[in-house]
């Protein structure tokens, strides 16, 4: 028998560990349902959820598409907004003083409170959903970008001051690129927030449901909301599984982008003393 390098072993564990944990949890769940005979309306077994995933696949995929669309569009709107707010706050102390309470305050309002209000103001539909998603998603981008801007090298700042660069020139030639890793970090958080926002947008009825548009199925949040009164708990769980997988996929793929962005910017802070 040959010795396996310990790094290879720990690498294998890194992949296996999460799979094992999930498998154990699923097994325990399945076992609990089988042993106690709990009503599947209260707690469906993992196998029930899996079969709901299959039988309701067209409904679920359509709902996933709706959610993905809202999240995608929301991020596309929220990211530039967050970066713009961060740049403004970074470049102008007055803007920072003026906007900071508003920004932080906007995050203190719970989405379940905010969402119905937005519905009242804007009615049902995509616009309402987007507004909710953008409100929750732009904030992590703004905060993370602003921090990254503030952490850029003080020596570079000195050079820029010496060159007489304007605020716009600083942003254009140096700071926005330098803060890119921070933008991506903010985006990773923003996608998770955005998915939650999209679900709340669904849940408060901001999706055009049968009343407004008979062909629209709404997003995954709508599916959960509709499934529970229909006692289709397995379908609700199936929708939640898709939400989790969707969030993780976005989060991880942006993690890859983040690593690439950081690889080409080795430590903006290069303080040696």
């Amino acid at each position: 028998m040959t010795a396996v390098p310990s790094s290879r072993i720990s690498e294998a564990w890194g992949v296996l560990a999460p799979i094992l944990v999930i498998a154990l949890l699923l097994a325990a769940w399945q076992g609990y349902v089988a042993l106690t005979g709990v009503d599947p309306i209260v707690l469906p077994a993992p196998t029930d959820v899996a079969s709901a995933l299959w039988t309701d696949r067209s409904l679920l995929l359509e709902a996933l598409w709706q959610t993905a669309r809202v999240v995608g569009l929301g991020i596309v709107l929220a990211a530039p907004l967050g970066v713009a707010v961060a740049a403004l706050v970074h470049a102008s102390p007055i803007a920072r003083r003026g906007l900071e309470p508003l920004l932080v305050g906007s995050q203190a309002i719970p989405i379940p409170v905010l969402a119905p209000l937005v519905v009242v103001w804007l009615g049902f539909g995509l616009t309402t959903q987007l507004v909710i998603v953008v409100i929750v998603a732009f904030f992590p981008v703004a905060v993370s970008t602003r921090d990254a801007l503030a952490k850029l090298s003080p020596e570079t700042d000195l050079v820029l001051r010496n060159l007489g660069a304007s605020s716009l020139q600083r942003l254009r030639f140096v700071e926005l690129r330098g803060a890119l890793p921070g933008v991506v970090t903010g985006l990773r958080l923003a996608v998770v927030f955005a998915v939650i926002g999209a679900v709340f947008a669904d849940a408060t009825g901001s999706t055009a449901t049968t009343a407004a548009d008979p062909t629209s199925t709404g997003g995954l949040g709508r599916v959960v909301d509709d499934a529970i009164p229909q006692l289709a708990t397995d379908r609700a769980f199936a929708a939640i599984v898709l939400l989790v997988v969707f969030s993780l996929a976005l989060f991880w793929s942006l993690g890859v982008v983040e690593r690439v962005a950081k690889r080409t910017s080795p430590r903006p802070l290069r303080r040696t003393s």
Partner: peptide
């Protein structure tokens, strides 16, 4: 004292900074 270069940018773009500004 410490160069204040942009580590992510090329030598060319770093040197060109004063001209761009």
């Amino acid at each position: 004292q410490r160069d204040g270069l942009m580590p992510w940018a090329s030598a060319r773009d770093n040197a060109a900074l004063p001209l761009r500004i």
